[in-house]
Design a binder for these strands. Structure first.
Lengths: 231, 231
DNA sequence: CCAAAAGTGTTTAGTGTACACCCATGC
DNA sequence: GCATGGGTGTACACTAAACACTTTTGG
């Protein structure tokens, strides 16, 4: 006999804009928490699971083709996380490549995750979880593909990693590590240098645009199996 | 205006018993799915979040002191995953050290995860997710502490890893890797050899009994920071 | 020629696997 | 002594960080 509760889905959609990691929020026009900024989302529909629901709700805010990766973060269920009726939330992380600028409704805006405005309910906590998840997965998976344009230079990619990780990243080592793991591949093209000159940069591409774990640890690996990421 | 739905929590409690990874299940006495085996769990209470709820529900089935680690796996929300009312489930992974044998009610039993009996609803999928989560975390965290007794020999620990991972593990390398990461420490004691003789094994202990990531990859690490696990 | 930006080479450190070998016990 | 199981030493392969150096452009 489960108690009747509502269920909503919420999405922390992250994108690197202007060299900062930003999140898409909309400003509530009604109480409770009128004027505060909230994550896009809404009620779970009767004929959908939470994954379908979050994609449907996102489609109402942004051009979904821009969202290259969506994954579940977890459940937020503090009894009074929202005033009034009991409402359990399933939170998601969404990622948008840096070269798209999806049209969004007038009450929505991007905000740097480091300097959030006044947020509604427990949404700041969800944004923090999303940022943590992104940080962790950037280093042991190929998740960078979801933040980067289809083609890019290594220094552009480095800037994305710097914004998302929050600490300096060497372009030299980034290129070498990702290439060795078989995550990056050169297209053979080069990009034109900027106004100050400099050697033209080689253009790279992610070899896959689906999540893959690239840094499986050794204790886990069955004996005799060489790490095959490099092939 | 969220639709009214029920919310339940479910726990896949895993333990290595008789050199096999097993899960605690109870046999349903009522329709639907009468006679099939189900995960322990139940409805989310009005004044608890899902973490509190799963601990409360587990306390009704097993001695909770035996459960050394609980973590959220995710939401299962297919519209008709349970017949009748809409019911969303938050699934958890729980781990019990191999040296405890908690008292359980008569309708519950441990089953090897490789040979599950007929299971209720989507519970087999949850068990599979739990096993996957355990496998992954064993290799890049110190999660072994949650499967092992407080003190143990390396070969006993090896047997736990073999059961959980499902592939051979070298005791030599397991010891070296975990020691180097600062996860294991010798107590100075030795265990008595078996009837067939053999050198007495040194007794080890996990240095921490809380989850810690031990294999942070390098790209993630800020420059100038040495991996400090070994200290 | 110089500054700027990109990319390569090389050194050093660390990690995990494999395997040979030595150690401590029961019989 | 010998079988048995436990533990160490060592060699090898691979990974990544740091940094010097070269390459290619614009002015």
């Amino acid at each position: 006999m489960p108690a009747a509760t509502g269920h909503e889905v919420l999405a922390a959609v992250l994108q690197v804009r202007a060299d900062e990691l930003q999140v898409l929020l909309w400003q509530r026009g009604m109480d409770p928490d009128r004027g505060r900024w909230a994550l896009p989302g809404g009620a779970l529909g009767a004929d959908e699971d939470v994954e379908e629901s979050v994609r449907r709700q996102l489609a109402e805010k942004v051009d979904v083709r821009g969202v290259t990766h969506v994954e579940q973060l977890g459940v937020f269920s503090a009894p009074h996380r929202v005033p009034g009726v009991r409402l359990v939330a399933t939170a998601f992380l969404g990622l948008v490549p840096s070269d798209v600028d999806p049209a969004v409704p007038p009450d929505t805006a991007w905000h740097p995750v480091d300097r959030l405005p006044a947020t509604a309910f427990d949404h700041a906590e969800i944004v923090e979880d999303a940022r943590e998840r992104l940080r962790a997965k950037l280093s042991y998976t190929n998740l960078g593909f979801a933040l980067a344009p289809r083609e890019f230079t290594v220094s552009a990619l480095r800037d994305l990693y710097v914004a998302a990780l929050g600490h300096p990243v060497s372009a030299t080592n980034l290129q070498r590590v990702l290439t060795r793991r078989g995550v990056l591949a050169a297209t053979g093209e080069t990009a034109a240098p900027g106004p100050a000159g400099g050697r033209p940069a080689a253009v790279f591409r992610f070899t896959e645009r689906a999540l893959r774990v690239t840094d499986a640890s050794a204790v886990l690996r069955p004996p005799g199996v060489r790490d095959s990421a490099g092939e």
